[in-house]
């Protein structure tokens, strides 16, 4: 693998993002609005759970950040479908770049965006929504990075399983919202029905939200997030294995749009 080629590919992806920032606006601005709207509702919910001084931002910020992080999955997948739509996929394949160069160059910017999105939302939460982090920032960072990695891998898995961009869009959004809903990003896990709480550990968002709550509300440290981090990495590996098993470099995908 050549870092120089991967970097060329990554720079090109970032350049295209800069020229067409619509998706970025969606990933950053929409959750900011949602956080502001949901905060009062979550304040009541958290206070009912026993967090007397909670402002609501403790659920609204990580919840919206986690939910919109799932949308980076379709963002990651679209990066590949676009190449087919523009007829550039075969050009990339016929270049001297290896499969690893191309994949790394295309996925690194998506990972940066996923991490950057959560960091910006947490920053905005602290500045404008009275979000206070009681626990370790290192633990928070580890969770943000591993959760973002699992979401990018999820995007690759969905992309590999989809033949058309419509399929990608449908499945990424459907499963993403399911992850967010079941995992406690939309509504605190404590107020979800019992059967949902039972199946919640089967989605990565649950482990991210559980860790966020532990660090933000209960003041926990790195040791408390090691198991969730391992599980999130496990999800990342699982999604990557699915992607690796189903992805065919020579497959022609159909892009609408």
């Amino acid at each position: 693998m050549s870092w120089r080629r991967s970097w060329a590919m990554a720079r090109h992806e970032l350049r295209m993002l800069k020229d067409d920032p619509g998706a970025i606006v969606f990933l950053f601005v929409m959750p900011l609005l949602m956080m502001g709207l949901m905060k009062p509702l979550f304040a009541l919910s958290l206070q009912a759970e026993g967090y007397a001084g909670a402002s609501g931002a403790e659920q609204a910020v990580p919840g919206m950040a986690a939910m919109f992080a799932t949308f980076t999955a379709s963002f990651a997948g679209f990066g590949f479908f676009r190449e087919h739509g523009w007829g550039t996929w075969d050009r990339l394949r016929a270049s001297a770049a290896t499969t690893g160069d191309i994949m790394a160059g295309k996925l690194a910017p998506t990972l940066i965006i996923a991490v950057g999105q959560i960091v910006v939302l947490f920053g905005a939460g602290m500045l404008f929504l009275d979000l206070r982090i009681a626990g370790s920032f290192v633990a928070l960072t580890l969770i943000i990075v591993t959760f973002s990695m699992s979401m990018v891998a999820f995007g690759m898995a969905i992309m590999s399983l989809s033949r058309t961009s419509l399929q990608l869009n449908t499945w990424a959004n459907l499963v993403g919202i399911l992850f967010a809903g079941v995992g406690g990003a939309l509504v605190p896990i404590a107020v979800l029905p019992g059967w949902v709480q039972t199946i919640a550990p089967a989605v990565p968002t649950y482990w991210a939200m559980k860790s966020f709550h532990g660090v933000i509300l209960d003041g926990r440290g790195v040791a408390s997030v090691l198991v969730p981090i391992a599980i999130l990495l496990g999800f990342g590996v699982l999604f990557s294995v699915i992607a690796g098993f189903k992805f065919r470099f020579e497959e022609t995908k159909i892009y609408y749009g």
Binding site: R4, A8, H12, D90, R91, S95
Partner: peptide, 18 residues
């Protein structure tokens, strides 16, 4: 097969570097 969203030069730069 070209990238419509970037300039002709940037298209050439990418493939030159690849």
């Amino acid at each position: 097969g070209i990238y419509p969203m970037v300039t002709a030069r940037q298209n050439l730069e990418l493939f030159a570097e690849l």
